[in-house]
Design a protein around this nucleic acid. Structure first.
Lengths: 180, 180
DNA sequence: GCAGATCGGGACCGGTTGGTCAACAATCAC
DNA sequence: GTGATTGTTGACCAACCGGTCCCGATCTGC
């Protein structure tokens, strides 16, 4: 009953994801989001409660697509367990850079931002990090190694965003992989 | 000649550093900064050109104190080269957490923020990262290992800020150190 | 004392922020 | 048709943003 929504929720969230990814939670203004999402102010507040709730929804989308994609690389049975699985993850991140994409990782930059002072965002970030860790654990079978590689991965993604030279990132990744 | 300044520049920058460290570049408002620095609006714009210039100055202070402190740990001749030097760096970061300080690292969170879209900030961040890298290189003697440890360090600091469990961070650091 | 120069305080500025609201449009059940 | 319900739109809001400016205070040189 009643008037049907004129836009696809998932599509709008996907557009919002791009804005938050580029500009961060605080750096993304309502005006930026509305322009990219192609809807009006009132529609956003009716469909999503507020900016914060929209961001949480974006995080869940990022979890369901991008993070899940990374976890799949780590658990893909077509690759042997161990080094090759982790190499697939690191290579994917470095391929983004080679393709000119320096956005890094929405999860990692949120983890470094003051958005994590919000308890619900902090918890969501923690859960997503845990999924990555579990993926690394399944790929390596070694909990401490998984923790090590998670830290390396987060740092890699942050260094990508800050414009670090590709050669440095590659060398660091190679060194980590060689020691698995 | 003329009226002397009534506050210490270095002291004011130190207070500004605390605010930027807690809230990030964009998250720190002029009002926050002025309150913590204990000066009036006009004085800030007279002494520092604007918010951006103040932040660059804060970064240089952080470089001269905190980063230099870390580099000193890595080049301290009282410790044998190799694992012990890197362990000193990682332990210092983890000791902050054990003492309840989850602020992480101003450099690392700036590297992950959209403040790095500013060319001058990006360059400064790059130079500071390079100083860390050089310290790690002097501590280990292996360029690729230095790159690996830099990524791990940045990730560690970001995970600290995001509230990751201490045991996970310790295990990851141990695993990295054990492989040196 | 006076002239010149800088500093401190805070009123003030236009623009932007996230968020609300009321009027209107589209749908459904009946 | 009518009424109930919900979506859309854009005007509107107070609060806040970074930054400017002016005036009175405080110093030095003479």
């Amino acid at each position: 009953m009643a008037r049907p929504r004129e836009f696809e929720i998932d599509e709008a969230v996907a557009h919002a994801q791009e804005v938050f990814w580029r500009q961060g939670y605080e750096g993304a203004s309502l005006a930026d989001l509305l322009r990219e999402m192609g809807i009006a102010r009132g529609s956003l507040y009716k469909a999503f409660q507020d900016k914060r709730s929209l961001f949480l929804r974006v995080l869940r989308l990022y979890d369901g697509h991008t993070i899940s994609g990374s976890v799949e690389l780590l658990t893909d049975r077509s690759r042997p367990k161990g080094r090759a699985r982790v190499a697939a993850l690191f290579d994917a991140a470095l391929d983004d850079v080679r393709a000119g994409d320096r956005r890094g990782c929405l999860l990692c930059q949120t983890a470094a931002s003051s958005a994590v002072d919000d308890p619900e965002i902090s918890q969501t970030v923690g859960e997503m990090m845990n999924r990555m860790r579990k993926g690394l654990l399944e790929a390596t079978g070694d909990p401490a190694l998984a923790d090590q590689l998670l830290a390396h991965y987060v740092g890699l993604r942050v260094l990508i965003r800050s414009g670090a030279p590709l050669a440095m990132l590659e060398a660091g990744a190679q060194a980590a992989l060689a020691r698995i």
